[in-house]
């Protein structure tokens, strides 16, 4: 190794190290302007939830405590994990006809992978994805949810 090579090795090495230090030095001086982390529980009020975010399956009810679920079990069939279980019953309409309706819409959040296939499968848009994401609980049984509210019934005109 010639002396000249040796010295140019040292010089280029030192230069590359200084270039790296320049970058981190710049970041250090800029730290108050740019932050890549979030202060999670503090920024809850200002957080933006994208409307398509898939957090959990919910069944929207309107003011009259009515939903759009006909109990067709398309979602139950579409689910790859057996997350949804629908128990149906037969309501008697004023005209005296027996009509199929849901008794309980059971949703196992602990099995759900938020794949959105049930929402896609639903013909009446009765269920949708909510933007919640803090699902941790101390007891796993709390994750088994009943989606239809107490005393709710199917909205008029939904077939």
């Amino acid at each position: 190794m010639g002396l000249r090579n040796y010295l140019s090795d040292v010089a280029s090495g030192v230069k590359s190290l200084l270039t790296g230090m320049k970058v981190t030095g710049r970041l250090f001086l800029r730290h108050h302007k740019e932050k890549i982390t979030q202060q999670y529980p503090d920024n809850k009020d200002t957080m933006v939830y994208p409307e398509r975010f898939r957090g959990e399956v919910v069944m929207p009810h309107d003011d009259n405590n009515e939903h759009a679920c006909t109990g067709c079990t398309a979602c139950e069939l579409a689910c790859p994990n057996g997350t949804i279980k629908i128990i149906t019953k037969f309501d008697v309409t004023p005209e005296g006809k027996r009509k199929k309706a849901i008794d309980t819409f059971i949703y196992h959040l602990q099995l759900c992978t938020m794949c959105n296939l049930c929402i896609e499968a639903c013909p009446t848009d009765a269920i949708k994805m909510a933007q919640t994401f803090e699902h941790s609980v101390f007891d796993r049984s709390q994750l088994i949810k009943k989606l239809n509210q107490e005393g709710s019934k199917i909205r008029e005109g939904v077939e």
């Binding site: 994208p50 398509r52 975010f53 898939r54 992978t113 938020m114 794949c115 959105n116 296939l117 896609e120 994805m129």
Partner: peptide, 15 residues
């Protein structure tokens, strides 16, 4: 991704 597909990592966006 989150805005368009609804998830950040396991999107299941292609059908």
């Amino acid at each position: 991704m989150e805005e368009t597909c609804g998830a950040r990592l396991t999107m299941n966006y292609m059908v």
